[in-house]
Nucleic acid binder design. Structure first.
Length: 328
DNA sequence: GTAGGGTTAG
């Protein structure tokens, strides 16, 4: 590892903080930053926070934050991101109040996005609406990414109508806006509306991507729209030349399972899929076997699940051996 | 070369 010279300025230190740096690298640079007296350089300190965050060193992220005398908005946002990634969702929300009461840094649109995401995973509707109110009051109400996050928050909280109102009030909808609405409709049982939205999107000239298809395929499986599901699956493969991923196959297997096409679903997974099936796909199929009392196939599926788990365990052993080899 | 929008199923 190259150490930073005595003359190294804050800028050159920031350059050295590559996003993929190791924990040891981050600690070395942290020491250099302190030694050179650059900890009060906000860009450098937040770069360091990000590096620690990417190494999973949440405590060090907090430490750098605490050491900063002037905590700017980005520093708060990195801290919030770090909390959210560590599933400390309730604490994430507390940071919003803390930020507003004891800091000179104001929450910006990124803060709003991060907090709306936290509300989505918590199902915290009231808090989410407070964030939205703040966003509107401070001129972030038209930001597309904020609106997209709000649509997702509303649909995850079951407020499809409110999500739809925000969606309709959004003038330049991106593929993300459309996909959020389509997935939201799908998850709340409005399969046909999700399909209509997909068609409306195509008419408006926005091209679907892989996640849009995940949304519309899940709409079909949720609402038992088997023929439509296959039509969209063909559309994605042949018209849009997209390679289905494990989630797309997950939807198709779910769709076939609901249509009692159990053996066909099994053949699709073992013969046709070009991607490795995950435990979710097998569990989906197992669920369908249970519903229809298809015991023989259920046993086969269970053996695949066991095999998958054994393989995962093997991967961990391999990983452990790698660490052991590096330590000596 | 600081943080940030939408993904299946159970």
């Amino acid at each position: 590892m190259r150490s930073v010279g005595r003359r190294g300025n804050a800028f050159s230190l920031a350059i050295l903080l590559k996003p993929c740096c190791t924990l040891a690298h981050a600690r070395q640079l942290h020491a250099n930053v302190v030694a050179e007296g650059h900890l009060q350089d906000a860009l450098l300190a937040t770069s360091l926070m990000r590096s620690y965050m990417n190494c999973g060193a949440a405590e060090s992220v907090c430490k750098v934050f605490d050491e900063m005398l002037v905590k700017d908005t980005v520093a708060w946002n990195v801290l919030i991101t770090c909390y959210a990634r560590n599933k400390r969702t309730k604490d994430t929300l507390k940071l919003f109040d803390e930020m507003r009461s004891e800091s000179e840094a104001e929450p910006d649109e990124v803060t709003c996005i991060l907090l709306l995401q936290a509300c989505t995973s918590l199902g915290a509707l009231d808090f989410g609406e407070q964030i939205w109110e703040y966003a509107m009051e401070h001129g972030y109400g038209c930001e597309l990414k904020v609106r997209n996050s709000l649509i997702t928050m509303y649909t995850r909280c079951g407020c499809v109508q409110k999500a739809y109102e925000v969606f309709c009030g959004t003038p330049r909808k991106s593929v993300v806006t459309w996909s959020a609405m389509i997935s939201g409709l799908a998850a709340n049982g409005f399969g046909k509306d999700a399909i209509s939205a997909f068609e409306e999107m195509s008419k408006s000239g926005v091209a679907p991507d892989a996640q849009t298809f995940t949304g519309v395929l899940s709409a079909c499986s949720h609402s038992g729209l088997v023929d439509e599901g296959f039509r969209f699956f063909d559309m994605m493969r042949y018209e849009y030349q997209m390679m289905p991923n494990v989630r797309h196959y997950g939807c198709i297997v779910d769709l076939m399972g609901r249509a009692c096409l159990l053996d066909e679903a099994y053949m699709l997974v073992v013969k046709e899929m070009r991607v490795a099936p995950d435990a979710t796909i097998w569990r989906t199929l197992l669920g369908a076997c249970r519903i229809y009392g298809h015991v023989d196939l259920g046993e086969k599926v269970i053996s695949h699940l066991i095999e998958l788990k054994a393989q995962q365990a093997g991967d961990y052993v391999l990983l452990l051996n790698t660490y052991a080899a590096n330590d000596t």
